[in-house]
Design a protein around this nucleic acid. Structure first.
Length: 159
DNA sequence: GCCAACGTTGGC
DNA sequence: GCCAACGTTGGC
């Protein structure tokens, strides 16, 4: 299957692009997703090598702050079985894990954020999921066209 | 901090 | 299986 593209949201106070940059090998598991639609994407559709836009939510301003690559396809999210984790879910067992995660590796931290406002103003991105009102899904598909447009925007700010 | 939009829960 | 109530997300 051809390489696919995604947008992952994170609140920077929880896990930021800088946190990822500091990780060994600049790689981290994307744990804590507790939404079935996003879970299905993590478990079934997101594959090693796919491109990921790292998006900071609930901050000022919100927007895309980096590009990553999926380093490992979906596997059970062990934080669901960790009582000390804020993402603990007693329904999840070793035999029947409910929640999944992938590993992401930092490709590039952007020198400046591409804000949500800028995305909304960009022709071709006005229908992108993240620019649509009420789109709360924390793991979103990005179409090849959208990826191409954003890639161009990135090239403009990376010298 | 507000509140709209959305997902989940639970009574029936 | 419907749907109201509730909780959460996330932009502003």
């Amino acid at each position: 299957m051809a390489r696919q593209h995604w947008l992952f949201k994170s609140e920077p106070s929880d896990f930021s692009i800088d946190d990822l940059e500091r990780r060994p090998n600049q790689t981290a598991h994307w744990d804590g997703v507790r939404n079935y639609q996003a879970r299905n994407l993590l478990r079934d559709d997101i594959k090693k090598g796919d491109g990921v836009l790292f998006y900071h939510s609930s901050t000022n301003p919100t927007g895309i702050v980096g590009v990553c690559e999926v380093a490992r396809s979906g596997y059970p999210d062990h934080t669901a079985r960790d009582k000390s984790s804020g993402h603990y879910d007693p329904r999840s067992t070793e035999d029947k894990p409910i929640w999944y995660m992938v590993d992401v590796k930092l490709v590039r931290k952007l020198p400046e954020i591409i804000t949500l406002a800028a995305l909304k103003e960009t022709p071709g991105l006005d229908n992108m999921m993240v620019t649509r009102r009420g789109a709360r899904l924390s793991i979103q598909p990005v179409t090849p066209d959208e990826w191409k447009i954003i890639d161009k925007m990135i090239k403009k700010i990376v010298k």
